Amino acid sequence: MSAWRRGKRSWGWWAFAAVGPPLIVADAAGQIDRGIADAQVAIFLATMALGTAAGLWIWGWRPATHMGPKMTWWPVLWVVQDLLVAFPTSAFVSTFGLAIFGMSQIVLGQVALSYPNGRMVGRVA
C-alpha cells in the first residue's frame, strides 16, 4: 500500500478519474433511456469500468512505466465511441464520436505491443 501512496497523481490522472466514470454512467443512461440496454451492454460497460479502474491504478502506482495512461485511454475512448449508440440524435456526440472512431482499437494495440514498460522496443518499434 505504501507504493500506492508514493505514486504521483498528475493532472491527467485526475482528469481521467473525473471524466471516465461519468462517461460510463452517461452511456448506460442513454442506452437505458432508448430501451436498448441488455446483458451485452452491461458486460461491455463493466469491462470498460474495470479497464478504466485498472489503468488509473497502474498510472497512480507506477507512473514511470507509461502503461497507465495508455491503459486508461483505451476504455475511455471506447466508451466515447459507444456514445454514438446511446445518443444518436446529438450533433456534438455524433461529431466527436465519429472524429475519434477507431482510436480506441489503435490505443489498445499500442498497449499490447508496448507491454510491460510502456515503450515499444526492438523490431516491433
Score class of each variant (00 low, 15 high):
F44L: 04
M67L: 15
A112Y: 08
S2T: 13
M67C: 15
W4G: 08
G60Q: 03
R9E: 04
A112E: 03
W78T: 00
G60T: 07
T95E: 12
D27V: 00
I36Q: 04
P69I: 01
T89K: 07
A42L: 14
V19C: 08
W73F: 15
T89L: 12
V25A: 13
R34V: 07
L98I: 15
K8E: 04
L84D: 15
T89F: 10
R5C: 10
I43D: 10
A99W: 08
R119F: 15
T89A: 14
Q110E: 09
G20M: 00
G122Y: 09
G51P: 02
A18F: 10
V124D: 07
I106C: 12
W11H: 13
A91G: 14
V121C: 08
W13V: 06
F101W: 12
K70C: 01
R62M: 04
T65S: 15
A42V: 15
G97R: 00
A86R: 06
T72W: 02
K70M: 11
G30H: 06
G35V: 11
G12S: 12
V41D: 05
A3Y: 09
P63R: 04
W59E: 00
N117L: 09
S10H: 03
T89C: 06
S104K: 05
M1L: 05
L113D: 08
W59I: 03
D33L: 10
A37H: 07
L23G: 01
D33C: 03
V85S: 09
I106D: 06
G60P: 02
P22H: 04
G51H: 03
F44E: 03
G60N: 03
P75H: 02
D82M: 14
P21N: 02
M103Q: 13
P22C: 09
A54P: 00
S94K: 06
I100Y: 04
A18E: 07
M120D: 05
M103N: 07
P88Y: 12
A29F: 06
V85P: 00
F96M: 15
I106G: 13
L98T: 14
L56V: 13
A3D: 08
A64R: 14
I58A: 01
Q31Y: 05
M48K: 02
D82H: 15
I43K: 08
A26S: 11
M48Q: 08
S114E: 09
T72G: 02
